[in-house]
Write a protein that binds this DNA or RNA. Sequence first.
DNA 1: CTCTATGCAAAATATTTGCAAGGGA
DNA 2: TCCCTTGCAAATATTTTGCATAGAG
Lengths: 151, 151
Amino acid sequence: MDNSYPLINIIYYIMMVNKQDSDARLENFKKVSREHKLPLTPQKLAIFRTLASSCTHPGVSEIYHRVKEEFSNISLATVYKNLKKFADLGLIIEIPIPGDKPRYDAKLDIHSHAVDTADGRVYDLEISTSLPLPDKILGKSVKQAQILYYL
Amino acid sequence: MDNSYPLINIIYYIMMVNKQDSDARLENFKKVSREHKLPLTPQKLAIFRTLASSCTHPGVSEIYHRVKEEFSNISLATVYKNLKKFADLGLIIEIPIPGDKPRYDAKLDIHSHAVDTADGRVYDLEISTSLPLPDKILGKSVKQAQILYYL
DNA sequence: CTCTATGCAAAATATTTGCAAGGGA
DNA sequence: TCCCTTGCAAATATTTTGCATAGAG
């Protein structure tokens, strides 16, 4: 007898970004910037907003080109510097992609990603069963976790 | 009343590599190479063995330097080419690290990794609860999955 | 003998840095 | 005013490629 059928069905949802989400992210961005006494430049806002309102998890270069439509003379270095700073402040998450450049995500709650190896697209994923999340590993607290699924 | 205590205890194991593991990996490597009619050069063997017998999930540069002790004139390009080929053949897994260079792993069964953000070390992790693993997402079959925990 | 692999060097990419000038709070 | 930030260009770092030669099967 074949026992290999799954006992539970995993339900997953592909998440999209709506206006409420991106507005809330932008508010949090401003709040954290104020708390750290960091000036809110138009460039920073444009970079963050591009990310916060996007479903496509863009990388450095795509963010650069999109922001360039508004600020034609923005520098690539500014995009690099800010994405790094945002990640340090916990305002965005870096999604590492095997064999490719990293992508970024302004969705902060712990969730998973599906990477389509055919076209490089990355999707946000919520799953019905919870992610195994230990408090501590090796005595150190777990700061972040993500599952990467490769299709 | 506070319901926030976890209902289950997650048990995890830090996995080490023993000689049986690395020998089995090496055998599989030879078998797959034969199947694809790819010549088994001493350089390839050294690169694969370095990885298969390691607990530290080395990156390109570390593998290069370790193999260089044996083959003093090995080229970095050879290491790049071979790691890419091994990954394509499914002989190794690339572990993408946020903000850092990728690491490699010859352990093939689906498992998780803990990334120590303090020192960059990466550990293999087995956990007592299973990883939520859907067959298909967006109609495409799931080829691989890994959880990354950041400490 | 045939086909892939290797090593080297150059090219292509990607990312970081230093610094003078500008701009938010 | 005081820092932090920006844009530019140069410096680094990383990865890929072309090609002549070597070596595995």
